[in-house]
Each structure stands twice: as structure tokens, then as C-alpha cells.
Design a protein around this nucleic acid. Structure first.
Lengths: 142, 142
DNA sequence: ATAAAATCTATAGAATTTATAGACTATAAG
DNA sequence: CTTATAGTCTATAAATTCTATAGATTTTAT
């Protein structure tokens, strides 16, 4: 399951994607509109900024705005930043690999295959799901 | 990520699948061989028994053994029993559905689609991964 | 009767997630 | 050049979930 942090991040990003080219948006505004605790959101936006997904402007008239293009921000990227690995087992993760304590031998482990497949399918689907794609879909549904 | 509980369960089940038709196996033996804390394993096996995946026999000469056939126990079932939903969002779960607090309106939510797809692919892959299938794969790899 | 082994209830410890507080820094605007 | 605004940073608290353990009870084979 995605953490709240991750869901908050996704909603905040969609909000910012809808308002791109309209200048910086205050944390407070995002927090209010998306019902996210402001201080919690602060940390989230900061991480997204450090990852170059967002830019920020300090001082009066400041706020956050998208740095990358909406079509270049996928759910994969957001989930990895917020929650870490996409894979269901550490020993199968591409970006957060760790040896399984439980597994005696990775080479002869009969379990990994299935989880490799799940990982690959998940990555495939979540990579093509970008902010641009989500906005488009939202409009279609209205 | 799967919980330790879930990984323990999978390993215990594989161990029992390898020993099926050889009579009940003690908790202690499974715990020793799979390096699982015995008391923790107790609870896991009990849940699997309540779910009719395992049977148990009390008293001397007792222990746990498979109730279902190895080809009828899939990773989906085990994961659902131990960790709950397969889906990455509650509002997309088939067996553990819950409304998203974050979503204002499920009908016009542009995010859900991707996660429905992920869920379906994951289910497809993990359903065909049964204890029998895993044992077979293990032998091939040796 | 006795010993072996699962069952049940309760709880403790650890880790992670979620949320909050307050001081600090940068910037725009008058 | 002061003031108000808004992001940044560090620390910590509260809540929840995950992992592990303890001890008493029940069942069964011998």
C-alpha cells in the first residue's frame, strides 16, 4: 500500500500540474485545497524539490511550481521518492536492492521469478502514468 | 514490500509442501530449519490453519501439514491472509476495498486507472504462482 | 499418568509513519 | 532598509504497525 505521504505527494503534484505557468503556489494553498497537514506537506515538497521535480521561490510571492514537464513526471518516480522500492521483495528491487535474509540462496530461490514479473509489469504501467496522462484522464472523466 | 510475517509464511508453506504426505511437522522443526522465531511462527501457522490452508494435529506426534493441495495454494492467497490487500490503493482493492480519504471523487479520479491495471497484472502473476509451481521451479534451478 | 505439542491470551519492544513546533533564511515591495 | 511573506531546517512527539516473547491451557499418543 502507498503511504499517506506518497498519496499526498501525488495529489500535490497534480494540483501543481493543473496550475503550471500560473506562477508559484503557496504551501498553504496546496495544503488547504488537498487537505494535507501543512507541516507534513512542507517536508514532502522539499523532497520533491531536492529531486528536481519541483522548484521553489522564497519570500513574498514565492511558492512551489513544477520544474519537470508534466509528461516527464511518472508515478514510478514519485513512489520511489516517497516510499522507496516498487518491488514486493528487496532482493528483486532494481533501485533499492537488498539481500533477503530469509532466502538461503538467491540463485535457486523459486519465489523470486514471480516477483520479478510483478515488478516489471508494475514498472511498465506506472511509467506510462505521468502527471500529463493523469490530467488528461481526469478531463475525459468529467 | 511484503512483511516478514508474510515471507515467513511463504517459506513455512514451501517447507510443508516439500514434506507433504510425511505426516505432521512440528512448529519447532519449521522454526529451526527456516530460521523463524518459534512464537511468531505459531501465530502465522494458526492463521493459515483458520484459513483452511493447513491442518494441525495436537498432542504427541502432532504438528502442522498442508490441507489444500500445493497447486491450490497461490501467493495471492498467502499475501492476502498475511498482509491484506494486493492493491496499492485501498480504493482499488477487490478484497479490502476502502474509500480513499484523499480522493474527492472516485468517478473522476485520474489516478485509479493505473492502479487498477497494476492490481490486475499483479493478481494474474501471483495467482499462477502456487506452492506446486514454486517447488517445480526450485528443482529446475538446482 | 505423563510427556509432547498445538492453542490461546496478553503484552512488550522496536520500527516506521504521521504530524507538529519553532527558529532561521531569503525575497519582494513599499 | 524595514516589514511581512513564504520557504528551509532541525528536532521531537504522537500514533500506528510490525516483530517478538511469555506463560497458562488444552489435546492426544503412549
Amino acid at each position: 500500500m502507498l503511504s499517506k505521504k506518497c498519496k499526498y505527494a501525488i495529489h500535490a503534484l497534480i494540483y501543481l500540474a493543473e496550475r503550471k505557468d500560473k506562477g508559484p503556489v503557496h504551501i498553504q494553498e496546496i495544503a488547504d485545497k488537498q487537505h494535507i497537514p501543512k507541516k507534513f506537506l512542507e517536508g514532502i515538497l522539499l523532497e520533491l524539490r531536492n529531486a528536481k521535480v519541483l522548484h521553489s521561490k522564497k519570500g513574498k510571492g514565492g511558492g512551489y511550481y513544477l520544474h519537470k514537464r508534466p509528461e516527464d513526471v511518472s508515478l514510478v518516480e514519485v513512489i520511489r521518492l516517497m516510499d522507496g522500492a516498487i518491488a514486493m521483495l528487496p532482493c528483486v528491487s532494481l533501485n533499492y536492492y537488498e539481500k533477503c535474509e530469509e532466502c538461503r540462496d538467491e540463485k535457486t530461490c523459486g519465489i523470486r521469478d514471480a516477483f520479478v514479473d510483478v515488478r516489471d509489469e508494475t514498472l511498465r504501467i506506472l511509467s506510462r502514468s505521468t502527471l500529463a496522462q493523469i490530467l488528461k484522464r481526469q478531463k475525459e472523466l468529467k
